[in-house]
């Protein structure tokens, strides 16, 4: 089996005599037997740690849950700085979780959570922060400050939770560079290994925003900007 891996600016070809293994298994074989300098991140091998996200043939995958195919072209994630080979620096992207205040603001005491309540954010709380959605998101080409798909899904995860007593504050935080900056292209949904749709979560957050008195700023502007809501929080 032959694959090519993007290293610095060029693609390097590797050939290994194997079939029916994951891309991570293949990369590990290359690193330990052919080329010790090949650099990638990995951890759990079972799709929960989010370390080994990368792109294969222009599509984000977890190397540990993707069966490698002959001729695959492997590259690092986009929209994040490449540290070396397939390893990227996630710090700036993860910082959007804090900017979006993606946490439960109030401490919940003895609240009953029903099975229905639990289902509201069950899938969203499966997020492994692999950054696949962040890499696939086209908004970063025009707005580097966009809070982004995983941080907004995380906001939904908390804002929708019955245990959050101050839902309004969650909504206030995501008006600037947030829910209205998404193009609803759905790329994030397609690449998520956990079956999360950030696009849908963003739409739900938009509904909550409207209920909280906010509106789409581009929509407002096209009508002369007469709505004048200023919910921009200061970070």
């Amino acid at each position: 089996m032959k694959i090519t891996v993007k290293r610095e600016e060029k693609f390097v070809e590797y050939e290994v005599d194997v079939v029916d293994i994951t891309l991570l298994q293949l990369l590990t074989i290359i690193k330990t037997t052919q080329d010790n300098t090949l650099t990638f991140a990995s951890g759990c091998r079972s799709s929960v740690c989010g370390s080994c996200s990368m792109r294969v043939n222009d599509r984000e995958v977890l190397a540990c849950s993707y069966k490698v195919q002959d001729g695959d072209r492997v590259e690092p994630l986009r929209n994040v700085p490449v540290v070396r080979d397939l390893v990227v620096d996630m710090d700036r992207s993860y910082a959007f979780n804090a900017k979006a205040k993606a946490w439960q603001k109030t401490i919940s005491e003895g609240l009953e959570v029903t099975q229905e309540d639990e289902k509201i954010n069950e899938v969203q709380s499966d997020c492994i922060l692999c950054g696949s959605c962040y890499s696939a998101c086209p908004v970063y080409a025009v707005n580097e400050e966009f809070l982004g798909p995983f941080a907004l899904t995380r906001v939904w995860r908390y804002a929708s939770d019955i245990r959050e007593a101050d839902e309004k504050s969650k909504i206030d935080t995501i008006q600037t560079n947030g829910v209205w900056d998404c193009t609803l292209c759905n790329e994030c949904t397609i690449v998520c290994p956990q079956g999360i749709s950030s696009k849908t979560d963003i739409e739900k957050l938009r509904s909550k925003s409207v209920m909280a008195g906010y509106s789409d700023p581009s929509f407002a502007n096209s009508f002369g900007g007469g709505f004048g809501f200023d919910g921009s929080p200061s970070f």
Partner: peptide, 15 residues
């Protein structure tokens, strides 16, 4: 853990 938002599975009677 419940008070800070861990999404535990629940029983029919909300426990």
């Amino acid at each position: 853990l419940d008070s800070i938002g861990v999404c535990f599975s629940r029983t029919k009677d909300a426990k």
